[in-house]
Design a protein around this nucleic acid. Structure first.
Lengths: 152, 152
DNA sequence: GCGAAATGCTTGACTCGTCAACTATCGACA
DNA sequence: TGTCGATAGTTGACGAGTCAAGCATTTCGC
């Protein structure tokens, strides 16, 4: 009944919700969790602010306030980069790592349950179809960017 | 590299964005567009406020303000239901219908382009996998509701 | 037919996404 | 060295999602 696009968004929202329940229980939001995971992956060197934004899907301005809230909760630390004072280096704190460690299992389990209606083979199929979709979407966006740049 | 859940959310966000560009150009947001489509589908009888919320994915409180903005733009009208004065009946206006009519084509085209990386057969597969996922997710949620109700 | 519970909706407070505009810093080049 | 353009990030403003609380109105049990 739904178009593929609508089906995709509906399904995504349901899963988002299922996962968010688990994360909210620890006092942070899904997006804050995403930032923390990115920072954990970056290790002790940390990451400049906009690098984090790029790895999320987000447009840049939102990331500042997201980090503000995480810093207020003492889950990340920020400091001006000494070699390039425009940049702000962000690092996950010990508290942040502890919080993440407690969430790894429950989040994986929530995802597993959310997708438990599919067989392993179907999961592979799904991933493949989604990857293909994203690739062609990225290509389409890139084309559009070229065109607008030419026009300017 | 991504888990299926992450791939799903990333893909959904990209498509959401591609579609939103087209809709924003007409001065309304994706969610406002969704409400208008639901109301157009409901016809002249309109729908009570919470019925609209149910057909979106949304939690109830948001719908009031969404309708506030649509009413301010004169795209919907609202009036208290005379037989049950708790309800507020919402109807799409002539302006709303006109705006939707101008968006039908471009939105369908944007969705088509967004998914143009998949063959028709793959699209069917994708829809089937997504439907299956939602069904099992709904079942899981229903189970959880039962449990919490028993516990209370 | 009256009080209590249920229903339908609204409001307040907070998080997040996004656009436009702004500040600070860096780099290149004259 | 001083200026100009790019880069990194921040701020303001608004739409939206979500929780908890609140206000009518209606319905149900007695």
């Amino acid at each position: 009944m739904d178009t593929p696009a609508v089906a995709l968004m509906r399904t995504s929202d349901l899963i988002r919700r299922a996962v968010a329940v688990v994360i909210d229980a620890q006092g942070i939001t899904l997006q804050q969790y995403n930032v923390l995971r990115i920072l954990r992956g970056a290790g002790a060197d940390g990451l400049p602010t906009l690098e984090i934004a790029e790895r999320m899907i987000e447009q840049t301005p939102g990331i500042t306030r997201l980090l503000d809230r995480l810093e207020a909760k003492k889950l990340v630390r920020r400091e001006r980069c000494p070699t390039d004072r425009r940049q702000v280096t962000c690092r996950i704190s010990g508290d942040g790592l502890k919080l993440l460690a407690g969430l790894d299992g429950p989040v994986a389990e929530a995802e597993r349950v959310a997708l438990s209606g599919l067989t392993p083979h179907q999961l592979e199929q799904l991933i493949a179809l989604l990857d293909r979709t994203r690739n062609s979407l990225h290509a389409a966006l890139a084309r559009r960017v070229e065109i607008t740049q030419e026009a300017s």
